[in-house]
Computed example of a mutant assay.
Amino acid sequence: MAESTLPSNPFASDAHTGKVALVTGASSGIGRATVYQLRASGWTVYAAARRAERLQSLAEETGAIALPLDTIDESAVIAATEKLLQETGGRLDALVNIAGGAHGADRVGEGSNEDWEWMYRTNVLGTLNMIRAFLPALRENGEGTILNLTSTAAEAGYEGGAGYNAAKFGERGLTEALRLEEAENNVRVIEIRPGMVHTEEFSKVRLGSAEAAEKVYAGVEKPLLAEDVAQTVVFALNVPHHINLDHITLRPVAQAAQYKVIRRNS
């Protein structure tokens, strides 16, 4: 009788040795945590963000390769594409678009053009720039993956969130169209939609102060952490390539919906 064999463990620490990922938004929060966890599972990781000094620190800590880059600067994206592909011999297995963000919490009637334009450029056009630049290499790979981090803001509007809703709905639409367009090229397209995540910068950047940011999470038991979302991102990348996790929504238990958050006394 022939011996039965078990499939190799796709989550072993060396299972992805030789595979190359590019992670944007890597200088803080979910992007930074994703770099740590991808490196721990054996990936070669290019860590991209605007803040070069933070990337250098991350590179020293993890062995990732720093790639200073502003995703909304098309010429910078093209230069980064040439650098990465030259160094990897043309190889890229996964493009992980984490970079994004929110500015302001205006209602529609008081919406700021400046904030809305910033959010659209950062969340939609920045993602478009990265995909357009690296898609040929991912097609050539034969088993390439694009993972876009959107938000539960891409699922339902909420008061004070219209600008961010519009940007994330746009990124979601881009992602869904891309999945249909690239299936014939065996490129996986994955979308991760996190709910309330307590990171050091997101709400502070959005609302303008640490004090205002902390009020977002006041009384919420165990909001998601960057590491929780990164774990989900890395899981989606590490499952065998024939499995496409089209989209994953994750929230803390205390956030039953976009409009229902359980807050308990401190």
Rank of each mutant, 00 (worst) to 15 (best):
A2L: 14
E3H: 10
S4W: 09
S8E: 11
G18C: 04
K19N: 07
V20C: 06
G29L: 07
R32L: 12
A33V: 05
A33Q: 15
Y36D: 13
T44V: 08
Y46H: 06
L55R: 02
Q56V: 01
E60D: 14
E61V: 01
T62Y: 04
G63F: 08
T71I: 15
T71C: 12
A79R: 13
E82A: 13
L85C: 03
G90I: 00
R91W: 03
R91L: 12
L95H: 03
L95K: 09
L95D: 00
N97R: 03
I98K: 02
A99M: 08
G101Y: 08
A105C: 03
D106A: 14
E114L: 13
W118K: 09
W118H: 10
N123K: 10
N123A: 08
N123S: 09
R132E: 15
A133V: 05
G142N: 11
G144W: 07
I146V: 15
L147G: 06
L147Y: 10
L149G: 04
A154L: 07
G157Q: 02
G163S: 15
N165S: 14
N165H: 13
R172G: 03
E176G: 00
E181M: 09
P194R: 06
V205G: 05
E211I: 13
A213S: 15
E214S: 15
A218Q: 14
G219F: 11
P223K: 12
L225Q: 14
D228R: 02
V233Q: 05
N238P: 00
H242S: 14
N244F: 09
N244R: 14
L245F: 15
I248F: 10
T249Y: 06
L250P: 07
R251P: 01
Q255K: 13
A256M: 15
K260D: 14
N265V: 12
